[in-house]
Structure formats: C-alpha cells, structure tokens
C-alpha cells in the first residue's frame, strides 16, 4: 500500500508518518519512508538523528547541483540516496531545500 500524510504545519504529519512507517515495518512489511516536505524532518521522527537527516538532504541537494550522479532505477535510488532507519524502514529524502532565487513569485 502507498500512504501519504498531509495537514497544516505543526499538526503532526511527520510524527504520524514515522510511527505508521515503523509500526508497519515491525509487522513484517517492507517499508520505504519518503520525505517529500520542503523542510524535511522525517529522519528525526524516525530516529536516525540530526546528522544523518542532514546528510541525506545534502546528498539530495548535490544531485540537483550536478555533483552527484543520478541512479537509474527506484531500487538504485534507495540504495544510493537512502539510509536505514530503525525497525528496517528505508528512508529517502525526495525534496530539496531550494535556495531562494528571484523569479516569478
């Protein structure tokens, strides 16, 4: 199954997503957790810590900046850009924090 969690800021999207992901994983499901928030904090709620969360984001950013080679398929993407979170959840960051630039508002 594929679940997406949406809601107002501060309503608990990230916390909910992390608990659901780890609970499913504990019940034996293979779980991929994707952080699609432009302010990606899912790593913290899953329990991989600040540094690993920032490392994933930096890798994602490097891809945009052409410093990192893209992966050819979804499984390679998860291998290369993901990290192992507790309970066997595989976490990857999908969005990049974009630097502000002038343009169409």
């Amino acid at each position: 199954m594929k679940l997406a969690v949406v809601g107002k800021g501060g309503s608990g999207k990230t916390t909910t997503a992390a608990v659901v992901a780890r609970t499913l994983a504990r019940h034996g499901t293979s779980v991929v957790a994707l952080d699609c928030d432009s302010n990606p904090n899912l790593g913290i709620s899953l329990g991989v810590g600040d540094d690993e969360t920032e490392r994933l984001i930096a890798m994602r950013q490097a891809l945009d900046e052409g410093e990192q080679e893209h992966a050819p398929g979804w499984d390679d993407l998860l291998d290369r850009f993901g990290t192992d979170a507790p309970d066997g959840v595989r976490l990857a960051v999908v969005t990049a924090i974009q630097n502000p630039e002038p343009g169409c508002p």
Partner: peptide, 30 residues
C-alpha cells in the same frame, strides 16, 4: 510556514526577520 515558501522576496519589506523556533530537534533543524 516551512522553508520553501517564505522567501522568494516575500520578506523584503522587513528590516527585521524573526525566526520563530520551538526548542525541539525538528524546530532547531528548521
């Protein structure tokens, strides 16, 4: 809220930008 939308010139009228931060791991990272 968040890190994507607030800029792109939205705050250019401000002489002071205040970052409202909660004392939590996610808050500090943000």
């Amino acid at each position: 809220g968040g890190t994507r939308q607030p800029f792109y010139g939205w705050a250019r009228y401000a002489d002071t930008v205040l970052v409202v931060t909660e004392p939590t791991a996610k808050g500090l990272l943000s």
